[in-house]
Computed example of a mutant assay.
Amino acid sequence: MAAKSLGVALVTGASQGIGRAIAQRLAKDGFRVALNDIPKKEQELKSVSSEIEQQTGSKPCIALADVSNESQVEQMVGEATKAFGGLDVMVANAGILHENTKIVDLSAETWEKVFAINARGVFFCYKHAARQMIAQGRGGRIIGAASIAGRRSGFEHGAYGASKFAVRGLTHTAAAELGPYGITVNAYAPGFIASPMTTGMTTSALANYGFITPENFKFGEPKDVASLVSYLASKEAHYITGQTVSPNGGVYLN
Rank of each mutant, 00 (worst) to 15 (best):
I103A: 14
A237Y: 09
V245I: 15
G85R: 00
V114T: 15
H238P: 04
I96H: 13
S204W: 05
I148N: 04
L170A: 03
S163Q: 07
H238E: 14
K41S: 14
F124G: 00
S246I: 07
G57D: 08
S50W: 02
A23R: 03
G13T: 08
F84R: 03
A237L: 09
E51D: 13
F165V: 02
T110L: 05
D29L: 00
S47Q: 15
H172G: 01
D29E: 06
I143W: 05
T81D: 08
G158H: 10
K59C: 13
N118T: 08
L87Q: 03
K28N: 06
D66I: 06
V104N: 15
D29G: 03
T244G: 02
G19S: 01
V73K: 11
K59R: 15
K164F: 02
A189Y: 01
S5M: 08
N36Y: 12
I38V: 15
K127E: 04
F155V: 11
N36H: 12
S107I: 10
E53A: 13
P60I: 14
A94M: 13
E53V: 07
G144K: 00
L6A: 07
A83L: 07
R120C: 00
A92R: 01
G144F: 02
K46V: 12
L106Q: 08
V89H: 05
F217V: 07
S47L: 12
F217R: 02
A162D: 04
V104L: 14
L26I: 09
A63M: 11
A130T: 06
A27P: 08
G13F: 04
T171P: 03
K40P: 04
L64V: 12
D66N: 14
S49P: 07
R120S: 10
V89R: 04
T12I: 06
G19H: 00
M90T: 08
R25Q: 15
D88Y: 04
E177K: 11
R25P: 02
N118A: 11
E215G: 12
E99L: 09
V225S: 03
Y188G: 03
T244V: 15
A166M: 08
G220F: 09
L253A: 14
A237V: 10
A237M: 04
S5H: 08
A226H: 10
A135W: 03
Y209G: 06
S234M: 01
V225E: 10
K223N: 13
N118I: 08
H128R: 06
P196N: 11
V114E: 12
R131H: 03
L170T: 07
S49H: 04
L45S: 05
N186L: 11
A63H: 07
I142A: 05
A187S: 13
Q243F: 04
M90K: 06
A23K: 00
S246M: 11
A146D: 10
T199I: 13
I52E: 01
A135N: 01
N69I: 13
T241L: 11
L6Y: 11
V48D: 03
A162W: 03
H172F: 10
E79S: 11
A129L: 09
I62M: 14
V229W: 03
A80R: 06
F217E: 07
M1Q: 10
Q132A: 11
L10E: 00
V33W: 03
T56H: 11
F155P: 02
L253K: 11
M1V: 09
S227E: 15
V185N: 05
V245R: 01
D105V: 01
